[in-house]
Amino acid sequence: MHNSRQLTLQSSIHYFFTALFWIPVVFFSLLLVKNTLPYFTFSQGFIFIEERALLFLKPIYKFSFYSHILAGMFCIIAALTQFSSYILKKRKAVHIWMGKIYVTVVIVVGAPTGLYMSFFAKGSFWERVLFMFMAMYWFYSTVKGLQAIKGKNILAHKNWMIRSYSMAMTAVTFRIYHILFYYFGVGHLHNYEISLWISVLGNMLIAEYFIFRKSRSYLKTFTT
């Protein structure tokens, strides 16, 4: 009796923390999608575009930007379904198809356009390098995840996809930090740079923590 009560308590705590993690993730992901949709009116009246008015004179930059945000929207939506154990067990076809969309969109559209735009990213030289690193790591981790599942290595697939998703989610976490620092009165450019570094490094650390918690031989996860 005591044991079953303990198990119920443990599972309740587990569900509570799972909800505590996923509810904000889903909410902010959907908010990002909602705020991205108006860009497809192709109006120039957005603050983001006004700031980069000169860059938007370049057709290739403009094309990259719209492709990148479209890809980002698909990635965020597709990725939301990928970590559900219910979908994985009961609706495996959904997991497979959404996964295919995610991988294709990241490899063919999201990462290459992100890499091109990183050359003109806001901030100093190091912020540009960070954006380049993000594009490369996003691409690499997604390819590794795809190769792992092709080789039926489910554990490695999970680990690499967590890393890939952590890079996709920098778009969401950056905005959260950006708003928080703005609220505390940090100047715009500093805010932009700090939020960028914290979102990328923070997401990587969180991803590695999740992998570390599940993997017995953590260091091997980088080579499999």
Partner: peptide, 21 residues
Amino acid sequence: AIIYAGIGLFAAASVYGVVDY
């Protein structure tokens, strides 16, 4: 095919990015 297409696009983006930069 997707991986190869991705690698090609990624390489093109980096080369064009450097030149444009």
